[in-house]
Structure formats: structure tokens, C-alpha cells
Amino acid sequence: MKRLKPSLVFIFLVMPCSLLVAFTYYPAIKSLFSSFWNQGTSRRPSKFVGLENYQTLLADDVLAQILWNNALYALVTIPISIGLSIGMALLVNSKIKGTSLMRLSFFLPTMLPMIAVANIWLFFYAPGIGLISQIMQYFGFEPINFLGDASTSLWSMIVVAIWKESGLFMIFYLAALQAVPANLKEAAKIEGASGIQVFFDVVLPLLKPTTIFVAVNALINSFRLIDHVIVMTEGGPNNSSALLLYYIYEVTFAYRDFAYGSALTVFLVALLGLMALFQFKILDKKAHYQ
């Protein structure tokens, strides 16, 4: 290890890191400051209001519903995508024919922008002429307006998210499966273990680090990616499909309340920070960052 010459510090560290500070640290801290002020108008400049925005936040029924939506969205999407992606990885990794076509089919949704995915599914869900409606009518069911009904809109988003994300997770599991030593599986088989036993007792424990990595990424994604909400439902009907970041977007850029938007941003950052802390303290002993 060499010492870093002061002349190089600027080029190597200060220049790149200042950009990072300007668009990650500065906005996070600035949000905290802005959240103590109210939204000014042309006649009344904004003034210091202390914790008023946070009182609003605590009393905000819409926010409570949206947090519930986001929790449900994450808690349903993540385990199902993980389960499916392990299945996909096992299938693609097996000796049956056509694995490359299968891999393409599983991975393609991941390559598409969320906007494109949303457009395709919008058509799928369309009442009356949409494919799902047609299939239901064919079997004599009443068609459902999936996106227009408060009881199905969030579930429709969940299906879209699972379709889009499982293929990406499959890639991580595929890599992990290929790293499982063949002699371990052989040994278990010689001991008389069945294929299913080998999977649960030998392979699955070895996939644990991958699962932690995937789960954390999926959790972050469930708070970060809201393109489909904008395109498919705009959070509706009655906020039934709104997620937290969508609410921030709506409050800030549709209602032009930057102050409350800042308070909500602080809340989101704190939430993600807590999750990171949880991961760090409880799960990180098994993670891969050396």
C-alpha cells in the first residue's frame, strides 16, 4: 500500500466524491432542513414551523394507507419472486432441452423498461377487450376491471412487479447454483438422499447468502421503482395502489407542496436507513461484501 500524494487526492477523490455529495448527501440533509419550514406562496414567504410538517405526517390517513400498501407490496412481491426465481434457476440449470429459450423467456421482462412493461400489462388488464377479460368471459366469469377497482389494483401491480423482477433474481441464483460443488451433491446421493432431500439439505443452505443479497435489493426496489404506478393507475382508485415514492412525487410535483414532500423524503430515507441497519446488524454476517 502506497501513500496517496496530496496532488492526486483532488483528482482521485475530491472531484468524483463532490458530485456524489451534491446529489446524495446534500439533498438528504437539505430535505431535513426544508421539512421544518412550510410551503411559501408568492404572497407569503415560507416560514419556520418546527415539527408542523411531521405532525401533519403522523395524522395523514392517506400516508398510513400508502405505507400499508407499500408493506403489502414488498411482503408479497419479494417472497414470491424469490421462490419463482429459485425455481427458474433450477429449471434453467437442469439437463432438459431448450434451457436457453427458457432463460430468454424468464429474463426478457427484466430487460424491458418498467414503462414498456406497464404498457404491455395495461393492455392485458384492460376491461372488456384485454386478454384476461376475454379469457374470463370465455369461461363464463364476470370480467373484472383490475386497475379500476380498489380491491384489485394493488394486486395487479404486484403481479407486474413479480413478472418483471424474477428473471433478474434468477441470474443471481443461477450463478450460485453453478458454484455448488458437484461432489457435495454426489456424496449426499451416495448416502441415499433423494433429489428433493439433496435440494433442501445441501443446495438450499448454500443459497442463503444469495437470498439475503436478493431480498435486500428487492426491498430497496420496492421503495424506489414506481414507474408502473404512474403509467397504470396514478395511485388510484382512492390511493389503493399508491406507493410511498409515488406519494412524494404527487405531493411535490402535482400539489406543489415541496415542504411536505421534503418531510416525506426524510421519512423514506429514515425508513431505508433502518432497514439497512437491520440488515447490517442481523444479516450481514452471512453477506458477501468481504
Partner: peptide
């Protein structure tokens, strides 16, 4: 590494102001 978690995607309000 904090940026892996707190990405610019979620800091839209203040980044827009900047």
C-alpha cells in the same frame, strides 16, 4: 456505499431544487 441504498432516485424533491 451509502449511495447504494439512498439512491438519487428517491431524492427527487431536493435534486429538482438543486
Amino acid at each position: 456505499m451509502v449511495q447504494l441504498l439512498i439512491t438519487p432516485d428517491i431524492l427527487i424533491v431536493e435534486n429538482y431544487n438543486t
